[in-house]
Design a protein around this nucleic acid. Structure first.
Lengths: 124, 124
DNA sequence: TCCTACCCTGGATAAAGTCCAAGTCCAGTA
DNA sequence: TACTGGACTTGGACTTTATCCAGGGTAGGA
């Protein structure tokens, strides 16, 4: 555990946190000015393979990193401002996929992204 | 309807077709050698805004384009080889999101991506 | 035929992510 | 303390994906 890794882990803390790699880097630099982009990418990659952090692809440009990896959840995204909330649907979407639609795959995971307009953008 | 647009539309035809913009360009060039990347991107963008083609973000690298935009469906992705199939789950995942989890958003759409291993990769 | 509006092209540019060679730091050993 | 090996970090170059822009072409109407 080096100073660099600690800083990255600190940046990724809290609920409804979904930062891009660049945002993580920017916040890490604020705490540790000499940290490099490559280190941030390396550390994020390690956190992902350790299962501590999830990659989220709600936005089609940059990957986002979600520290809330231990409790399964999905995402609700504002189509206008890009705000993201963690949500917990009732029911298990995996069960909604009948065998006839599995094409012989062994299906192990499901990602759900709800899209809509957040109250702020609806008011504006 | 120009020759360039017709070629792009022809490339994007069929079931379970999910090409990246680069793949669309490569196939379009095979039919019309002087077509430029910019035109492919422009045309894809127009097809998307006309609702003829859907953007799919199953892969975190490049966007993919799915011509099967008229019948709602979701995607099943092989984690190893990246193969993509269109699937039609039973039930409506939108209904699984309780009001208490909507944070005041007006939710209008949902994308579901199932992940697993395809029969080919499982055999290998 | 000329004009206008739209379309296409190629190249430059931007954004996001990865790779790599070199340097630094640290723990263990003598 | 001095050395060694290994792991980590750095900065920059590079790749991939996508967009922008200036210039030129083409079709159809006047």
């Amino acid at each position: 555990m080096t100073a660099q890794r600690r800083v990255v882990a600190e940046v990724l803390d809290g609920d409804h946190v979904h930062l891009t790699a660049d945002e993580v880097h920017a916040r890490a630099v604020a705490k540790l000015p000499e940290i490099s982009r490559a280190t941030v990418y390396n550390t994020l990659g390690e956190l992902v393979s350790l299962g501590e952090v999830m990659e989220v692809a709600t936005d089609k440009r940059a990957k986002r990193y979600d520290p809330n990896a231990h409790r399964p959840h999905h995402h609700l995204v504002c189509a206008q401002c890009g705000a993201i909330r963690d949500v917990h649907p009732s029911g298990n979407p995996l069960a909604d996929l009948p065998d006839s639609e599995r094409f012989g795959f062994s299906v192990s995971a499901v990602e759900v992204t709800y899209r809509g307009v957040c109250p702020n953008c609806a008011a504006a």
